[in-house]
Nucleic acid binder design. Structure first.
Lengths: 106, 106
DNA sequence: TAACTATATAAGTGGTTGCTTATACAGTCA
DNA sequence: TGACTGTATAAGCAACCACTTATATAGTTA
């Protein structure tokens, strides 16, 4: 890993909203609509954060029906470090949300 | 450590030039004039990077004569992680420099 | 099919960042 | 003292970033 690659990685995870997203999806895949209320942010904003994280292969996306489920990529070389960094953060509460998938099997 | 503190920390270390600086000072304290030629960058630019790193307590500065020697702060809570991240980077060669402290005892 | 839901993308914008040059300040040494 | 060296700070600027709103796309369901 060269300087520029590490820089890009650290910039991807080193942003407040993205740290929160990563902290949330430790506990299992989430779709964007699960996060809108909690993050108090527009849907496109969250989508753009997901794209940034995906560019770095930090997260995986799985399309199922109208939803895209986002999860941590456990095969990323820096996944153990990421887990450790996220463990430094306090737990955040995920607000209940009005997504239509609420009762769905995950 | 909360989200905003981790964000600030990652932003401090997640920048190309600062990563290079940190990689260099692993091997011992350096002053700014030691880095100008190697980084091919103005003295104020390097000074500003040092200030940013100092704000996060990632580095220590020790004034001696006209020089300020910068070193890693081994007491920083994330020092072990930092060392590990820097270990991922290839070694860089520090160019010879015209500083007047060349023959000085460090 | 048409309305609805979830997501992605595009375009625009204000704030931040990393550099530059200019300048001030402090220590060294003839 | 005065010239010199090393550093820090200030101001300005171009590029980048994280948001917004508007819109396009795709799947679901009545």
């Amino acid at each position: 890993m060269n300087h520029s690659e590490l820089e890009n990685y650290l910039k991807a995870i080193g942003e407040g909203t993205r740290l929160k997203i990563l902290k949330f999806i430790i506990d299992g895949p989430l779709c964007i609509c699960d996060l809108i209320e909690t993050l108090d942010m527009s849907q496109p904003a969250i989508s753009q954060h997901m794209r940034r994280l995906k560019e770095e292969n930090i997260v995986l996306d799985e399309k199922r029906g109208r939803w895209t489920y986002w999860s941590l990529n456990a095969k990323h070389p820096q996944y153990p470090i990421l887990l450790h960094l996220l463990s430094l953060l306090p737990t955040l509460e995920l607000l209940k949300h009005p997504c239509t998938n609420e009762t769905e099997e995950r």
